[in-house]
Write a protein that binds this DNA or RNA. Structure first.
Length: 151
DNA sequence: GCCAACGTTGGC
DNA sequence: GCCAACGTTGGC
């Protein structure tokens, strides 16, 4: 079992939106960064736990917990010319982008602010803080517990 | 809205 | 294969 952090802009899709999807969860489409893609494609497993992070908003930070509930499948939006995530270089034979289905587990009573995460000595090496702009990043077990202890 | 960080693209 | 230009992310 591995741990991850996945970012979402709550104006587009928040932890409440994920909760409203219920047990079916939500296909995590639109990731168009190779490093993040590789994490989703090769490194995640069904049952992995996810810190659900709200970015680019008033209250930036970890909003709750989600879970990976599917194997990697091609992200269909890459084939759709109408989609903002359309990739003309992707083909059905050779998809470029993969996604996982993600479901809601828990919403924290209050968001854990990014500023608070930055103050934790246990989190200085956290990928979120070291490589800022990645939308999907790994979390170590000790980082996972350090973050949860703040909730 | 600004701007730093950084990934991607494309000319050579 | 280098690297400059450009685009995107995302905190503040």
């Amino acid at each position: 079992m591995n741990y991850w952090l996945m970012k979402s802009e709550p104006d587009a899709f928040s932890i409440d939106d994920l909760r409203s999807r219920g047990a079916d969860g939500e296909p995590w489409d639109g990731v168009r960064n190779y490093q993040a893609r590789n994490f989703m494609w090769h490194d995640m497993s069904v049952g992995d736990r996810v810190l659900f992070y709200h970015s680019s908003c008033k209250d930036v930070g970890v909003a709750g917990i989600a879970e990976i509930i599917s194997e990697a499948v091609p992200d269909e939006s890459q084939f759709n010319p109408e989609s903002p995530y359309y990739d003309p270089k992707a083909t059905a034979d050779k998809p470029r982008w993969y996604l996982r289905q993600v479901r809601f587990v828990e919403k924290f009573p209050t968001i854990i602010p990014l500023a608070l995460l930055k103050k934790q000595s246990a989190l200085v090496d956290m990928a979120l803080l070291k490589r800022g702009r990645l939308s999907v990043s790994p979390v170590t077990e000790s980082e996972w517990h350090a973050v949860l202890s703040l909730s």
